[in-house]
Simulated assay, not measured.
Amino acid sequence: MRSGNPTLQESTFLDLASGSVVTRDSEAMTLNGTVNKTGLLLLLAVLTAAFAWTQSVAPDGTPTASFGLYAWGGAIGGLILALVTVFKKTWAPVTAPMYALVEGCFLGAISAMFEARFPGIVMQAVMLTFGTLFALLAVYRSGLIKATENFKLGVAAATGGIALVYLATIVLGLFNIQVPLIHESGLVGIGFSLFVVVVAALNLVLDFDFIETGVEHGAPKYMEWYGAFGLMVTLVWLYVEFLRLLAKLQSRD
């Protein structure tokens, strides 16, 4: 099984069981357990996001001195914890909640900034994110979308391409070189954001497939945390991309 989400890969279950199926018992991964842990991670992220929101932007909409701490600290801290979780899956019961708490700081800071510039945009992005989550879950459960090998390869390739574009943007930005068009509010920029949103949304299908496969293989209990963490990573990405897309659309008004 391939997954476009770099945290969820085919080798995960093979590494856990040395290529065999893990024995099912009371300590095995379950769907309900993964759902519950996903809900807990989202709650932790919301709590720290609410706090960071109040600390990052002044009443007049200008960023406070703490904005950089929460935005960059949350982003870098979240990346470090994500990498630790990927390479040390057995630590997921500890690192996944820590990731949610730290990433919440990042989300709260940037959400406050977007909201100051475009009132109402955060609620729209939240509704679109969870609307997409539940819509794709319903479609996946109905069998209308199946995570075939070709589907997984296509989404993985598109995800990797987007990651390279964003990496190039960051590196060039260090030299004050701006990538034209795709990050602007023109038709090309909006089209690019729509493409990224679609790819991020399709990663949810791969996340559902990964979790379902883990349950079928009787993966260890801590993999519930790892599956919830992987889904959380995709939801964060999808939410941020919705914010960017809505901001571009509102900038054209």
Rank of each mutant, 00 (worst) to 15 (best):
M98G: 06
V22I: 07
E184F: 05
I177K: 12
F13Q: 12
A112V: 06
G191T: 07
Y166G: 02
A163L: 12
P63M: 05
I110K: 07
L144S: 14
P93W: 00
G78P: 01
F114K: 01
T148G: 11
R141V: 14
K221Q: 12
K152I: 04
F195D: 10
T62W: 04
A219F: 07
S66H: 12
T62N: 13
V21A: 08
R117P: 02
G33T: 08
S20P: 11
T159Y: 09
E10M: 12
I76V: 09
A82S: 15
T64V: 06
A138H: 04
L172P: 09
L238E: 04
F242G: 01
Y166K: 04
A116P: 08
L107T: 08
N150R: 15
G61S: 11
S20R: 14
V171D: 01
G73I: 01
F13N: 09
W72L: 14
T95A: 05
T7Q: 08
T95M: 03
V22D: 07
A28P: 02
P220T: 13
S193N: 11
V215M: 06
M29R: 11
F118K: 00
A158E: 12
V233N: 05
A138K: 06
T64M: 03
N5T: 13
L128Y: 07
A156L: 14
A157W: 11
G19M: 03
G120P: 01
D25I: 06
M29E: 09
S11M: 11
P6M: 10
M123G: 06
F67Y: 14
N203F: 00
E216C: 03
A125D: 03
V21S: 09
L16W: 01
L47C: 03
V188D: 02
N36W: 11
E212Q: 10
G173N: 11
N203S: 03
N36I: 02
G191L: 04
Y166T: 13
D207V: 11
P6T: 12
S20G: 10
G108S: 02
G227C: 02
F195H: 08
S56H: 05
I80L: 11
T169K: 08
A58M: 10
L249F: 01
L246V: 02
S18A: 14
G61H: 07
F87H: 13
G39W: 06
D15W: 10
T148C: 05
N150Q: 15
